[in-house]
Design a protein around this nucleic acid. Structure first.
Length: 282
DNA sequence: GTCCAGGACGTGG
DNA sequence: CCACGTCATGGA
């Protein structure tokens, strides 16, 4: 560790909650509590001891931006903390922050994340990086960029345990390589139009699009609804929804629009806090 | 072995 | 528009 940041009293931050909540797939925690991972083409190590963040492989500006330490989290939490259910999540995960992740990596990662579980997603992203990403000091690999991934054959991608998602990722990488400006264009659009743009990529549906907008584009009104969030929202807020069966586009929109009404413009933060405290009791 | 997971897509009604 | 089957993979 060759650099550090001391957080002041009104900058709550919880590194474990932030990296462990499932928004990013390329971080691992050592036995001694140090996290190792890659982000935006760097191999980074970082640990938190109380109010002190110690890190290497990145400078203060990078850490501040990637972990969104510049945002007033107290203000965000105060704005979403409107009922007992979200209050429990907010109090038990205070310090969880939404990262600012790289758009192409997030796009591909959340195509990898459909209808599966987090350990499997991490394996897919790790294999893609090891096989096609630039080697970094320390043995890690950056996530490959679109131009590198675009020429890969469908079978080669399938070998990264992508299953039926291989052709989606193949086509999506080529679309991005052919339009290097895609992310800048999405970044300039308001939420509904940005979502429509992301839905053009094969393998990206409403849920993946909302994750990408939330984690890579800081569209904080995005409210991704997966099976966990659906269960939580049904139990805490929308008991008339039936639990069984797949989720229709209308039900998705009903849940998400309720969340935006109920939690306000930081609904996406509420989503991540609710997801963080999900319980597998059903 | 069965069921489920940070769902999306194609088809038929 | 809606309901339904299908799509690989791995962990529990």
């Amino acid at each position: 560790m060759n650099d550090s940041i001391v957080l002041d009293a009104d900058t709550p931050f919880d590194l474990d909650a932030t990296l462990g909540c499932g928004q990013a797939f390329r971080w691992e925690k050592d036995a001694d509590g140090t996290w190792s991972g890659t982000a935006r083409g760097r191999a980074v190590r970082i640990r938190q001891d109380e109010e002190t963040l110690s890190f290497s492989g990145a400078d203060k500006a990078f850490v501040t931006d990637y972990f969104a330490l510049d945002l007033d989290l107290n203000e965000i939490l105060a704005s979403i903390d409107t009922d007992p259910a979200i209050h429990r999540a907010v109090t038990s995960c205070t310090g969880l922050r939404l990262l600012r992740q790289e758009p192409f990596e997030t796009l591909i990662s959340y195509i990898c994340a459909t209808n599966t579980n987090i350990p499997t997603v991490k394996k897919r992203v790790r294999l893609l990086s090891e096989r096609y990403g630039t080697p970094l000091p320390g043995g890690a690999h950056a996530f490959p960029d679109a131009v590198t991934l675009a020429p890969c054959s469908e079978d080669a991608l399938r070998a990264c345990v992508l299953g039926y998602r291989a052709p989606y990722i193949c086509t999506t990488a080529r679309m991005c390589a052919d339009d290097p400006d895609w992310a800048a264009q999405v970044a300039d659009l308001p939420y509904p139009e940005a979502k429509t743009e992301l839905l053009r990529f094969p393998g990206v549906g409403p849920k993946a699009a909302d994750c990408i907008l939330l984690f890579a584009f800081q569209q904080y009104e995005a409210f991704p609804v997966d099976v966990w969030i659906r269960r939580i929202m049904r139990r805490a807020y929308l008991p008339h929804l039936n639990e069984s069966g797949g989720m229709s586009p209308r039900e998705y929109e009903e849940i998400a629009s309720f969340a935006r009404r109920h939690f306000g413009r930081y609904a996406g933060w509420a989503q991540e806090y609710l997801y963080c405290v999900r319980e597998d009791d059903r």
